[in-house]
Design a protein around this nucleic acid. Structure first.
Lengths: 244, 244
DNA sequence: ACTGAACTCCTAAGATGTTAGGATAGCAGC
DNA sequence: GCTGCTATCCTAACATCTTAGGAGTTCAGT
């Protein structure tokens, strides 16, 4: 384990350098190189899904072993994983071993057992809070038991929020290039999300109700959702409902 | 202006100390005491609203002069303020003076003129990205023109994301104490947000469609919204749609 | 024992959203 | 000149949500 002072200075340089990274794989490499001196072999940065929703579409960055990653995401282990579920309840960085789980939860024990098979024995989960109640998290993994002090945890925390911030801006830029909705459709959906009916929205936008309905039809088709309510949720998560 | 090295070390100590702050006004005082050496006299930490939506419900922490704060929020200046609007487009900290605005935008100039009357002459806006496309921001204000180097900007940035992270966890804890919806109502709304109809949701939850409809009626009444779609948006912003 | 909150179930009318067609006009890019 | 995209408008049947009532059960706390 490197010295605490060393960690801090290095992480601090990372904070500055991170701003100039323009490619997602560069962020991944940078985080990886920062995490290794702290004792972590891999990590994942992800948004936390709503109840009953899959984790996979919210993953931002992932350096987990491929086999584990595939199994965890496809089997939706997140809904079982005590560490993942505790991410909602904690505000401070969390040692994996400190995640509470009921003894009767055989599934939870099975998931943790399988993680060990893939070389993920210990780790730290850092929750990242957002202004809207949505959360993200970064989960660092290690192949051996960790011995981390408060400063190491703080360094991991700092690394997490910095990388997350940078990542969001990069993905936001990428996202703009593959937006699915037209400007008028976004404008329409923004009013619908504000609770306006189709008729009210048509008045606001100065068009006919029929046109608003057509826009909503196209929106639902493009986003591949069941109804307008889900369209709003998906559009929010996809960043469609913002200016610019 | 204090030395750059001093800023950095102080901010770094703040990162550690912030974790132990348990009261919102303590965070406010801590940020204030950190911001002043950087040249800032006041600040606001807030989520960014959807188009056509007011800023006020998303404000987390506010040390702006009371008069200006009241006017800005009640008049919904955010939708006019070029700095506020540019928050959506930038990923790096932004000097107020660098915010682009059209010359023909008399309203924008008026807002900025009024800010000066309240002693807000210059400042820095730090956007905070989230995993879901929702954004927050902190806006530092100063009574005089600022002369900030890259390291000062980085220090302000670091201060912002650290305080924001802590604040979210504190508010999240407070929020849990004044949740409006019952567990069953949250469970119902989570499936509705996933695009299920009332009938489908009733099947999933093993209750009658009538009960789901009753839950939705109560949800709309409690959240004081016009329809289920808006109920989902409001519940998401209020953090109602998460486990625990 | 009582109170309040949560959860459950019901009807019926009216409002609103959804589906499935079709149609015209403007405009940018090839 | 053509193609594709965007934006606009329309009808009609059907599905779903919304409103406005009422009512019974359970359970925790006073």
């Amino acid at each position: 384990m490197a010295s605490n002072r060393g960690h801090f200075e290095t992480v601090f340089e990372f904070v500055e350098a991170c701003e100039s990274l323009t490619r997602i794989d560069a962020v991944l490499a940078a985080v990886q190189s920062m995490a290794e001196p702290l004792g972590f072999s891999s990590f994942i940065i992800t948004g936390l899904p709503l109840p009953n929703r899959p984790l996979e579409p919210l993953v931002l960055l992932n350096s987990w072993p491929a086999g584990w990653s595939k199994r965890y995401l496809s089997q939706n282990y997140f809904q079982i994983d005590p560490v993942g579920q505790h991410a909602f309840a904690t505000s401070a960085p969390l040692r994996w071993g400190d995640a509470p789980y009921r003894k009767e939860a055989r599934l939870a024990q099975q998931v943790m057992g399988e993680a060990v098979e893939f070389g993920l024995r210990d780790g730290v989960l850092v929750p990242i809070f957002t202004a809207t109640g949505w959360q993200s998290a970064i989960s660092y993994a290690s192949g051996h038991k960790l011995d981390l002090g408060p400063k190491d945890m703080a360094a991991a925390h700092l690394l997490a929020i910095t990388a997350h911030s940078r990542l969001r801006s990069l993905l936001s830029e990428e996202r703009n290039l593959r937006r699915k909705l037209t400007p008028r459709e976004r404008e329409t959906l923004a009013w619908i999300a504000a609770g306006k009916s189709a008729w009210e929205t048509s008045s606001i936008l100065g068009i006919s109700e029929a046109t608003v309905i057509t826009h909503l039809n196209n929106i639902r088709r493009k986003l591949n959702v069941a109804n307008t309510t889900q369209a709003v949720v998906v559009a929010l998560q996809a960043g469609e409902l913002q200016p610019y």
